[in-house]
Design a protein around this nucleic acid. Structure first.
Lengths: 142, 142
DNA sequence: CTCTTAATGAAAAGTTTTTTCAATAACAGA
DNA sequence: TCTGTTATTGAAAAAACTTTTCATTAAGAG
């Protein structure tokens, strides 16, 4: 659901003039296989199973590129801001507190809210981040 | 607007059994005088003007307490998640990209959005974070 | 004013992230 | 397919951020 579309990412990478290196492809693969928010350290851990030489520095660098290209976004929660999840059209995340799965959700009605805020404050709003925490259906029983 | 109500914070601190020490009062004062999100390092800088002996450790510890008491909240933006701003009734921030001023805004209509998300995803939603970035009226001219 | 003990600051350790740089590998062109 | 250029890599070190430890200090109850 909320995993990275690796194929698209690879194309975009090439398109933007980046080389398609093993380490980069590895990071993309890891993000594609995972629908939870992953910390760089975790990306490294899984990535090493695919590309043993992968280094943490490269994980950081690749996450940076994927973020700039819009394929990945940082997950912010109260105590930590170090996880990354795949990014789609909108920037709204719903994070399961138990299994840490991250899904993006269709967000209708937020525009209205933003309009009101704009009217009341006089601010021009250029970006927004809506992040929800809760329990996914699978974790609710436990 | 979005600065800390120092008096209330002091009362709450005492209420909760904390001692009213110079360093703590200093941190509260700094947050009260500031309507921008401040990093611990910045709180220290300003705080030292009031209490020369103030240490970064104590800034961290006091921010922690004020966060638990609900007077302060962490600000998350794309690149950094290290700033703290005063927290009021709701948890919605509007941050000026230019002057970094932080205001909380009255947020009506979000409940409806959350209801819809709940219905569509089956998730139980326990917390939410809505953070907006933009330009405050004063910075729009520049 | 005194005593108890929470709180402090300094130092050190622990995390997370970035920079530097020599070696390597991607890939454009022969 | 081979070769040369150069972007990319990994290791090490540095930087940035945060927490822990502990002896000393000061808040505030009595």
């Amino acid at each position: 659901m909320s995993t990275l579309d690796g194929e698209k990412a690879v194309l975009a990478l090439r398109e933007a003039g980046y080389r398609l290196t093993q380490p980069r492809l590895t990071v993309i693969q890891v993000l594609q296989d995972n629908d939870a928010g992953l910390k760089p350290e975790e990306v490294l851990k899984y990535g090493r199973m695919i590309c043993a030489s992968l280094s943490l520095v490269t994980v950081y660098r690749t996450l940076e590129i994927l973020t700039q290209l819009g394929f990945v976004k940082r997950i912010h929660s109260e105590r930590s801001c170090h996880s990354y999840a795949s990014a789609g059209l909108d920037w709204h995340y719903l994070i399961c507190q138990r299994c840490h799965r991250v899904i993006e959700f269709p967000c209708t009605g937020l525009e209205t809210v933003l309009e009101q805020v704009k009217a009341q404050t006089g601010y021009i709003i250029t970006q927004h981040l809506l992040e929800l925490d809760g329990l996914c259906p699978a974790c609710q029983g436990k």
